[in-house]
């Protein structure tokens, strides 16, 4: 398959965007849990005082998402990857990410 400039179109760039988005959401969940469980980490995540640790949780997650996206896109730009594996990994990352942001699940993990 090629585009108008006869450059082969592969599923790589799409896979990179999908996996990076799920990884970013997973990172957000992990950071939210870390900030909730550890006061020193929460203090470190206070990038902007009025918003508190939420500012660091989201800033770092967005940074990780963009870095992962950039790296995967460079790696898979011209490649065809196994979408079934990518989609399965993305679903897992999204589900865990959502669970990690859900306060009762956070409390369960911390034994509260």
């Amino acid at each position: 398959m090629t585009d108008a400039n006869q450059t082969p179109i592969t599923n790589g760039p799409g896979a990179a965007a999908i996996l990076a988005a799920s990884a970013g959401c997973f990172a957000l969940g992990v950071l939210a849990l870390a900030g909730d469980a550890s006061p020193p980490i929460a203090a470190m995540l206070k990038v902007w005082k009025p918003t508190g640790p939420l500012s660091g949780v989201t800033d770092v997650a967005i940074l990780l998402w963009l870095v992962i996206w950039f790296a995967l896109n460079r790696l898979w730009k011209q490649r065809t990857v196994n979408m079934a594996t990518i989609n399965l990994a993305s679903v897992a990352l999204f589900v865990v990410g959502i669970l990690l942001t859900f306060p009762p699940f956070m409390d369960l993990l911390q034994g509260k």
Binding site: C25, L28, G29, V57, F94, G97, T101
Partner: peptide
């Protein structure tokens, strides 16, 4: 929950 999960939407 809201303050974290909301960020899934723009990403």
């Amino acid at each position: 929950w809201k303050e974290h999960i909301a960020w899934f939407a723009p990403i």
